[in-house]
């Protein structure tokens, strides 16, 4: 597992979904404590570790190992 998402910090801005060059992320239908549909990374094997998501996430929710 390479991409970690802290679901309690995610605000569902979907910036990671739009910016990821390999389309790793998607917004789930599950809801966190604050009421947002948080992002998940279902296609992690495609990740090339460019860390664009980690560097640009406004909420410090993503960590790429």
């Amino acid at each position: 597992m390479a991409v970690y998402i802290d679901k309690e910090l995610c605000k569902s801005c979907s910036m990671c979904v739009s910016l990821c060059p390999k389309n790793v992320f998607e917004i789930t239908h599950a809801v966190n404590k604050k009421g947002y549909n948080y992002a998940a990374a279902p296609r992690q094997e495609e990740c090339i570790k460019c860390k664009k998501c980690e560097k640009m996430c406004p909420d410090f929710a993503i960590y790429v190992e």
Binding site: C13, M56, P58, D59, F60
Partner: peptide, 11 residues
């Protein structure tokens, strides 16, 4: 807010 640039600047 969701997607605000201020969070990115903090990052």
């Amino acid at each position: 807010c969701a997607g605000c640039g201020c969070g990115q600047v903090l990052n």
